[in-house]
Amino acid sequence: MTIAVLAVQGAFIEHEKKLEHLGADCIELRRAEDLNQHYDGIVLPGGESTVQGKLMKELGMFDIIKSQIKNSMPVLATCAGMILLADKLEAESKVHLQTIPMTVKRNAYGRQLGSFHTNATIKGIGEVPMTFIRAPYVSQVSDEVEILSVVEERIVAVRYQKQIALAFHPELDNDLRIHEMFLSLCK
């Protein structure tokens, strides 16, 4: 199984290490030509969503990735990746891929000093460690979006079709179960 990891900015290497540990091959998406390779799923990593969205457009990757996701390509999106998938952003007009019918609040926990770590339950997995760094959260979902986790009364993980979007960074903790769940969607 081959997983494509958006590698234009952000925490992509940590995802690659987790996925390779689980037996997947990883390729990095850095330019439009990279999208011509075969892959079974995409990771949209944490980082700066505005920069990632801008670079995907400038590098000619945006429309292809959006089309792949809309045509059922499995996706694991963390932090900034969650923002990229949202069809609405709270108090903002600029949106990106718009593939999950949800509203996301960017930097919802404040600046870097608002970062924190906790353990909470993910539906279908159980309790997992969660590291939040300048994290967003989901403020609203449509009926078709499955809520996977809520922390402090805020939605921090959702699944929609073959898309998993997380407000936290599973690639920064030792638990592999979220990446395993994603790979099961890619089979």
Rank of each mutant, 00 (worst) to 15 (best):
N107D: 01
L29A: 12
H15S: 02
T121Q: 13
R30M: 12
L176A: 06
E90V: 00
K123P: 07
T78F: 03
E48S: 01
H96F: 14
A157S: 06
D175R: 10
M1E: 01
L6N: 08
R106L: 03
L113V: 15
I178Y: 03
V95A: 09
D175M: 07
T131R: 13
A91P: 06
P170V: 12
L166N: 08
S72T: 13
V51G: 07
L59Q: 10
S115H: 12
M102P: 00
D40R: 10
M102F: 00
L85G: 06
A11S: 12
L85N: 09
I69Y: 11
I133K: 04
C186D: 07
T118A: 13
L29D: 11
V141W: 02
D25C: 09
Q37Y: 10
T103S: 00
Q37P: 05
Q98P: 10
K162P: 05
E90F: 01
P136M: 05
K18S: 09
T99Y: 09
Q68E: 13
M56E: 12
K105F: 01
V158I: 04
A77L: 06
E180A: 15
A24C: 07
I133Q: 01
G60M: 11
L19I: 09
N36V: 01
R154H: 15
I65R: 08
I155K: 03
L183Y: 04
I69Q: 05
I178V: 14
Q37T: 09
S142C: 01
E20N: 15
E171Y: 02
S93H: 12
R154F: 04
T121V: 15
Y109N: 10
